[in-house]
């Protein structure tokens, strides 16, 4: 089954990362790289996203498209990246996510089957 893992940052997490010294931050990135290496066989693609303040949202439900600055939900939790994975079932996805060493929230969303 294919899923997308949506990585979610919180304000607190961003602050903690900011407060780290260079060596400590290096170790944090190292743990994340290790996770990607451990799961390389399951990961089909994905990317880190630019900061949420670079987002542009377009609303099309009001006649004319309305363009606004910022993400579609304003909040303390923002999507900061995603990967697509291919695993046997939700339990395998859960095992991956439970070992994730980065941001504090991850949403697991199954991909809809292709076709009509």
């Amino acid at each position: 089954m294919k899923y997308v893992l949506l990585f979610v940052d919180t304000e607190q997490f961003a602050n903690e990362l900011q407060a780290m010294g260079p060596a400590e931050r290096e170790r944090a990135y190292e743990r994340v790289n290790q996770w990607f290496a451990d799961n390389a066989g399951r990961i089909r693609g994905g990317s880190k996203l630019q900061e949420a303040d670079t987002a542009t949202t377009v609303r099309l439900d009001g006649g004319e498209p309305v363009i606004t600055d910022g993400p579609f939900v304003e909040g303390k939790e923002v999507v900061s990246g995603y990967v697509e994975i291919d695993v046997a079932d939700l339990d395998e996805a859960l095992r991956m996510v439970e070992a994730w060493p980065g941001c504090p929230v991850v949403e697991i969303r199954p991909l809809a089957p292709a076709g009509p």
Binding site: M1, D91, I108, P110
Partner: peptide, 10 residues
């Protein structure tokens, strides 16, 4: 079905 919750004993 759609989220792939398995039918197994963990």
């Amino acid at each position: 079905t759609e989220a792939g919750i398995p039918y197994r004993v963990p």
